[in-house]
Amino acid sequence: MTLNLCVLTPNRIVWDSEVKEIILSTNSGQIGVLKNHAPIATSLDIGILRIRLNDRWLTMALMGGFARIGNNEITILVNDAERGSDINPQEAQQTLQIAEANLNKAEGKRQTIEANLALRRARTRVEAINMIS
């Protein structure tokens, strides 16, 4: 019995194949999932997904969503997912700086909510790149 991972976004299937191990960043901290994990449902924060294929680790930036684990099937539903290797480092760094500036400028409850979300997304993308190197 092998562990199968399926990462779905509204646009496409990002990942659908066998993995050895994954580390998810959930709302209540990181959890590692190995074969024959107990069935759980968890919400995912904006954060990094780490995937182990044999001896290689891959990272993926997830933009918040939901994961369902059971029966050696992991289904991850997210708004957007990007592989660390697909992200342009310069662009990501720039977006992070813009997001930080926006948060400092933000006025009122609504703008703060928006700026915070944008900042966390930008930060995750930068982290996803840095994990590889």
């Binding site: 107990a38 069935p39 759980i40 449902a41 919400s43 939901f66 059971g70 708004n79």
Partner: peptide, 22 residues
Amino acid sequence: DFSPILQFEQDPVQILDALLPL
């Protein structure tokens, strides 16, 4: 039919919070 012994890692409210934006 999904496994009936599904555990929730967080509060159901939090899980809904994650699902509804999706």
